[in-house]
């Protein structure tokens, strides 16, 4: 089965559902390992830095977005890791998934900002187009 599974988390309900599906797949095989990836979006950097008092708080806020997915992993005794990267979400997920040679990428069909994605195209669409491994999109 899939040994290394990458789940993109952005704090949306879709992304937590993606984590739940990843749990189902990972529980099939003891050797499966899930990586929860959060992208600190470049276009939100100014807002986030402005509204946080210092680096520690920024880190804490971002870990907070991943927390529900992390809880799912813990409840189901899945071996997992958390990774936070900075960049433009679509390309950053693609580069990371390809560089690290994941076996499967799980991602929600829509992220937090539905309106923006209608105009710009969704992150999941970019990921499907350019990631080398199988991609599971969760509605």
């Amino acid at each position: 089965m899939y040994k290394r599974i990458l789940v993109a988390i952005d704090g949306s309900l879709h992304s937590y559902r993606a984590a739940a599906e990843a749990v189902k797949i990972a529980s099939l095989d003891k050797a499966s390992k899930v990586e929860l990836l959060y992208i600190a979006d470049f276009s939100k950097a100014k807002k986030e830095v402005l509204h946080a008092q210092g680096k520690a708080e920024l880190e804490q806020v971002r870990r907070g977005w991943i927390q529900p997915a992390e809880d799912l992993m813990k409840e189901n005794l899945i071996d997992y890791e958390v990774k936070i990267l900075h960049g433009d979400p679509g390309p950053t997920i693609v580069d990371y998934a390809n560089k690290e040679k994941f076996d499967l990428v799980v991602i929600g069909s829509r992220g937090l900002n539905g309106l923006q994605e209608m105009v710009l195209g969704s992150v999941s669409h970019k990921v499907v187009k350019r990631v080398n491994c199988p991609v599971l999109i969760i509605k």
């Binding site: 950097a45 100014k46 830095v49 920024l58 900075h86």
Partner: peptide, 12 residues
């Protein structure tokens, strides 16, 4: 310094 903090964050 605000800008430096933003660049710090973006580039980790």
């Amino acid at each position: 310094l605000l800008t430096a903090s933003i660049v710090d964050d973006m580039t980790d």
